[in-house]
Design a protein around this nucleic acid. Structure first.
Lengths: 230, 230
DNA sequence: GAGTGGTCTAGACCACTCT
DNA sequence: GAGTGGTCTAGACCACTCA
């Protein structure tokens, strides 16, 4: 085989794994050997194998060598865009409305969740995002005013809290959960659906270093599908 | 700054983005300039920036240069393990039972979904996965017998269909969807919950080249949270 | 046309970990 | 101790795309 790019090598290695030429659990040739076979620099092999290891089909260890994964962990990468862009990408016209915007002292539950000190104030926002005038997403958000006081100056008439935070508040870490919940009275009213309907929920808690920025619960009405490819 | 590794550079660039030293939308110095600043090879800068671009915080274009993303797409990577390992990782004792295993001709709906020819046979499996004896996940699966006839020889007493397929049927591509659904009578009976409860559903369709391998619907009872970090 | 990122090479040293 | 992957370097050419 003549000079190969790392993509060619990636494809060829993938093929050998898929066709069981290299069995699950088996050690594949070392980088040096593969470099000889493909007549390329070792770094090129390294890049190809490293990329495959990142996707989970190879396990690599120094000295031990590179193995075909026994239980390839299937990794699905979900892209979580700004709501406005998500709607516009689907061809909908975006609008949003603020249902509530209230400055309150954090409840004990919220304090525990966001690791806040006693008496910390938060901004409680409830927003509805619409696509072509139809409810698309109901957002219930708490923003830590100890870390993001500037948010009080924003009315969210032009830009949603979602987007404002993405653009103005860099974060270092985020915990995210996907789950199902039955719609409560609030959800039902906001989204214009029946109480008890099965909602798709995304909960996200973002941090800047050790300090919580915002906790948000996004509720999508029945029928919403979050999709991706493996 | 003296000789740096690509990780140091990654961290430093991240810091400059987080601290708004480099503003969203702004073009950052070119690889050549950064290589001078950090006193390292350009490849090292390239690797650091490429990794950051993969996470979505940078946008790179030839000639145009590298910009700090205006709307960093937050990418959440979900790891989808074999059910047994997921349960065992949580400290549960895994068991599974086959509720149904039936060879049938694919319905028109299924044919459309899996792009099957008229008259194609499929194996319809319904399984329940248990953690410490409690229903954990209800699996409803169709396997294309035109691509995976060997599956008929397997009884799934020792190993679940899930695990058998992962280990025996390499795939090239998978479509995956996450959604919510109300439990129907079947779901309710299998999982021992009330009809109408909000289920967390994963639908996955896997392909080998152009041929469908299996379509599966995984139903998790209320309370299940799929979590990850950003 | 020119400047940027994309990639490759050949060689080197290091870090880990297996035996 | 030895073999593997991890990473870095200096230089090179290419591909894209902006002006």
């Amino acid at each position: 085989m003549s000079r190969s790019s790392y993509r060619d090598i990636q494809d060829e290695v993938s093929r050998r794994i898929q066709e069981r030429i290299w069995q699950p659990g088996e050690i594949i040739p070392s980088e040096v050997e593969l470099a000889k076979e493909f007549d390329c620099a070792r770094v090129t092999i390294n890049r190809a194998l490293r990329a495959l290891a990142e996707t989970g089909v190879l396990d690599r260890k120094r000295k031990a060598g590179t193995r075909v994964s026994l239980n390839p962990v299937r990794k699905a990468t979900l892209e979580i865009p700004v709501v406005r862009l998500e709607i516009e990408a689907r061809g909908g016209e975006y609008r949003h409305g603020v249902l509530q915007s209230e400055r309150v002292v954090a409840s004990p539950t919220l304090r525990a969740r966001m690791d806040l000190e006693d008496g910390t104030e938060v901004l409680h926002l409830r927003c509805l995002h619409l696509s072509d005038g139809q409810p698309y997403l109901y957002e219930d958000r708490w923003v830590n005013l100890a870390t993001v006081p500037e948010i009080l100056t924003e009315s969210f008439e032009k830009i949603s809290a979602n987007e404002w935070l993405v653009q103005n508040t860099p974060f270092t870490r985020g915990d995210i959960a996907f789950l199902s919940q039955e719609a409560d009275a609030d959800d039902a009213e906001a989204l214009g659906i029946n109480k008890g309907a099965a909602l798709f929920i995304i909960e996200r808690l973002t941090w800047h270093l050790d300090r919580a920025i915002t906790l948000v619960r996004l509720a999508y009405p029945p029928g919403y599908r979050m999709t991706t490819q493996i």
